[in-house]
Design a protein around this nucleic acid. Structure first.
Lengths: 193, 193
DNA sequence: TGTACATCAGTGAACGCGCGTTCACTGATGTAC
DNA sequence: TGTACATCAGTGAACGCGCGTTCACTGATGTAC
């Protein structure tokens, strides 16, 4: 049965949102079209009414994941300062909750490895997202530095590496040790600003 | 046709070695049993004469990848000093060649994300490998520090995060920027030692 | 040392299954008169 | 404003394909006498 334009657009948005979460939870190849459509409350046949291929959705879901982060970042910056927003972002990044909930966490930590082996459309969307994130970190922490973007890239690499490594081990104590160790590195990176 | 014990053992070793490379190049799910056996110069049917399942090979291939690194590390330490071996390891880690050749590079950077979603046998093997690597980094850089293991965990997280992030973007200039930025973080981490 | 036989590494066809994608169909929505 | 018809979002069966795994078979290796 045909849906109204509004309902169809809402369906599309729902697919992208759930894909952004499931890809981060299960990996790009670990979340199938059937899974994604079921999560969005539909059957798989309708998928190609909205997207030309799974690849197209992957790119859009990555954009959506980074856009969510940027929006929350900007909202926090607007209600306090860019610096406070960046501080809060980093503080949340290195908490155990982020390790345990990849679906609503950083796409770099969750999917950086996958995207390194993915197609050009996914890599392109990902690269834009990395830039949008580092731009905000640079503005928050290194706005008076000539190479603020570079420092922000280093900060993001440290953050993502810490969370990815913590997730790769099962032992809770070692996870905490990796998070604590990463936190010290990050503090030093910020102190140099 | 039956193979001699030595030939069979050699076949097994060949499968593990090629798996250790292909998993790092294509991801754990991206390298199929057919691919792995073909790379080892055999047909897929013989796989289960050597391994109970693909999972079993995954764990063994991860062990092998980390064992290779440990062996090269120890050889370098023996012919110079643990410190020089660790310095050389880090210097190689952050070169563009490492980005371009994941198959012979660090398993943490290549497969950390995959292992975070993998089964317990893979995670267990991976965790042992991470410990063997951080133990060597700690001995090389932080042998006089009480929390040398922690500092080494932070160092490994930074290294792996830098290489993973660099691989996730396609633009060569940005790759170099990420590597250069990561190098500065690492230098600061080592200077604090 | 030579012979007869059991073992088993490796082959290649076959298995069920889930994947991404296609397609005929349904029926409410949107449009033209 | 009411009616007839085209559109198209969503359904569910079906497609070919590659996956991990199984199995009957082959024939050289290893073993027992």
């Amino acid at each position: 049965m045909r849906q109204s334009k509004e309902a169809a657009a809402e369906s599309r948005r729902r697919i992208v949102t759930h894909a952004a979460r499931l890809f981060r939870e299960r990996g790009i190849e670990g979340a199938s079209v059937v899974d994604l459509m079921r999560a969005a409350g539909m059957t798989h046949g309708g998928f190609y009414k909205h997207f030309a291929s799974k690849d197209e959705l992957v790119a859009e879901a990555l954009e959506s994941a980074f856009a969510d982060i940027a929006a929350r970042f900007d909202a926090a910056a607007a209600s306090s300062t860019p610096r406070d927003a960046a501080e809060a972002y980093v503080a949340r990044y290195l908490q155990i909750g982020h390790i345990e909930q990849p679906g609503i966490g950083c796409p770099v930590a969750a999917l950086g490895g996958d995207v390194g082996r993915a197609g050009p459309s996914a890599q392109s969307a990902f690269e834009k997202g990395v830039c949008s994130l580092t731009a905000r970190l640079a503005q928050g922490f290194f706005s008076d530095s000539a190479d603020g973007e570079k420092k922000a890239l280093a900060l993001l690499s440290t953050l993502a590496g810490t969370v990815m490594t913590a997730r790769s081990v099962a032992n809770p104590g070692r996870r905490e040790a990796i998070l604590a160790a990463g936190n010290e590195t990050v503090r030093a990176q910020l102190a140099r600003a």
